[in-house]
Design a protein around this nucleic acid. Structure first.
Lengths: 177, 177
DNA sequence: CATAACATGTAATGAGTTACATGATTAA
DNA sequence: TTAATCATGTAACTCATTACATGTTATG
């Protein structure tokens, strides 16, 4: 399980409350590791129990806000975890199943779903490109920026790949309905 | 949940026993929808209860072999499901988290893990290309072949994308250790 | 003081993983 | 007849999702 390590990574970048982290997961980190706020709160509680992170209650802040920060033990744990190998996570996408079902069942009216999906990937791609233009000048000023830029670049290529695939699929379906 | 529909799709392509399906999931379908044999048996039992598939016990066959086939109700269900939209499944890959952790923590010895992973993607890519060369002549002889070939093509591009990313990451890490 | 937004959680359920259990058939 | 392989399953556990519950603070 790596939600814990995704959280440690996020806290290594910047301290924050559970909701802060949930929001950051929605934006940057969540593009490759998603988590609901319920998961995040549960995992933060666990990490604090284990002594890897620590929460300071903020007296001035809203709600019962608890701002977590990474402890040295947490950084050690993260440092240990990073170079470990995990098995390759296979893609798992229902659209592939749908395409394959369409292939054997014959026309099933899949095209509109492909169009919606295409629009979604185009939106995400535009977001990524905006982030890239705003936050990642090239050449990158630092090793850190270069690596973070690379991760973003991977996201961009992923979206581009999907867009190409969907366009090809639509061409096929619409030429021969 | 789409395991059930992945199974219906597999049975639409060809009838088979639980173990047959588990093996086909390991090869073709499993490249984009994985399932263990335990999941598959459980789900097949459920689908039979619902009346979407039917098992014939094979008297001549090994063990208590039960060969499942798609029933008309199952085909209807599948036909209904195909054109439905699902939200885009975001990527979820620990390597992205590792890269990002490496970015903020500084050198952590990630390179060997990247090399191993690169080798894995190269192997998978070679498999896909072999399947493509063997089973997918071009131009494709039928609409069905064209669509199935497209799904395979998506897998190929996905592997190629990872290979490029990993090579770039290694270049970065090794130039500036 | 009402309400919107902030902030943290619980409970129930479902999906997925790991480890183990059981029996049938074939080939040595 | 014993070992390997084929074949189907159970049990226990972890992880993820969905829906709901609760309390706080700033703003009009």
């Amino acid at each position: 399980m790596s939600l814990s390590h995704a959280l440690l990574t996020a806290l290594a970048e910047k301290s924050g409350s559970g909701l802060d982290l949930a929001r950051r997961f929605d934006k940057s980190i969540g593009h490759f590791w998603q988590a609901s706020h319920q998961q995040i709160y549960r995992e933060l509680a666990r990490l604090e129990e284990t002594g890897l992170i620590h929460a300071k209650a903020q007296p001035g802040a809203r709600g019962g806000k608890r701002v977590y920060q990474l402890l040295p033990a947490g950084q050690d744990e993260l440092r240990n975890w990073v170079p470990q190998a995990d098995q390759i996570a296979p893609t798992r996408d229902a659209m592939m199943v749908r395409l394959r079902a369409e292939a054997t069942l014959g026309p099933t009216g899949l095209a509109p779903a492909l169009h919606r999906r295409l629009a979604g990937h185009r939106t995400t791609l535009a977001e990524y490109r905006a982030i890239q233009a705003r936050d990642f000048p090239k050449p990158p000023p630092s090793r850190q920026q270069a690596l973070q830029g690379l991760v973003l670049e991977a996201g961009i290529r992923h979206e581009e790949g999907w867009i190409e695939l969907l366009k090809d699929a639509l061409k096929l379906l619409e030429s021969d309905p």
